[in-house]
Amino acid sequence: KNAAQIVDEALNQGITLFVADNRLQYETSRDNIPEELLNEWKYYRQDLIDFLQQLD
């Protein structure tokens, strides 16, 4: 998997990933985040941060 796929997957589930103060953050109206997504975000944290910062 790559960062773009993970960001896309999150968006499809109503979750927006973004970077604030060099930390990976998310916004969602969901009550909870599936644990497998959280684990994936932790595992790919630096890739996601790098990818999202390139988009800014």
Rank of each mutant, 00 (worst) to 15 (best):
Y43G: 05
I15K: 00
A10G: 03
A4N: 06
Q13G: 05
I6N: 01
E9A: 06
L48M: 03
P34Y: 03
N2Y: 09
I15R: 00
Q54D: 10
L11F: 12
T28W: 04
A3D: 01
V7F: 11
D21N: 11
A4M: 09
L38S: 05
L37I: 06
R30V: 08
Q25R: 11
E35M: 11
D56N: 14
E35V: 11
L52T: 00
I49V: 07
I6V: 07
L48P: 00
E40T: 09
T28K: 03
E27V: 15
V19R: 01
F51G: 00
Q46F: 08
Y26N: 01
N12S: 14
L17A: 01
E36A: 12
A20Q: 14
E35Q: 12
F18A: 05
W41F: 09
A10M: 03
L17V: 03
L55E: 10
Y26K: 01
N12Q: 15
N32Q: 12
K42L: 13
A10C: 04
L55Y: 12
I49Q: 04
V7P: 00
N12H: 13
S29R: 11
Q13E: 09
L11H: 10
Q46L: 11
L37Y: 06
R30G: 08
A20F: 12
Q53S: 14
K42R: 14
L24V: 06
L38V: 09
E40D: 11
R30M: 10
L38H: 05
V7K: 02
A20L: 13
I33A: 03
D47V: 14
I6D: 00
D47K: 11
D8K: 15
L38Y: 07
N39K: 12
L24R: 00
Y26P: 01
I33Y: 02
K1Y: 04
E40R: 06
Y44M: 05
N22T: 05
L11P: 01
R23K: 14
A4R: 13
L37W: 08
Y43R: 13
D47H: 09
A3W: 05
Q54F: 09
W41R: 00
A10E: 01
Y43C: 07
L24H: 00
D21H: 08
G14Y: 04
L38G: 03
Y44A: 05
W41A: 01
Q53A: 10
D31C: 11
Q25D: 05
L55F: 12
L52N: 00
E35T: 09
L37D: 01
K42I: 14
T28F: 04
D31T: 12
E40L: 13
Q54S: 12
Y26H: 05
Y26V: 05
E36I: 09
F51W: 10
Q13P: 00
L48N: 00
E27C: 15
A4I: 05
Q25M: 15
I6C: 03
V19T: 05
A10N: 02
R23W: 08
L24D: 01
A4W: 11
D21G: 08
R45A: 13
N39I: 12
P34M: 03
Q46W: 08
F18C: 09
Q25Y: 15
Q13I: 10
Y43A: 12
D47P: 07
P34E: 05
L52H: 01
Y44G: 02
G14K: 05
L48S: 00
D8A: 15
E35P: 11
V7H: 04
K1F: 04
Q25W: 15
L24N: 01
D21S: 06
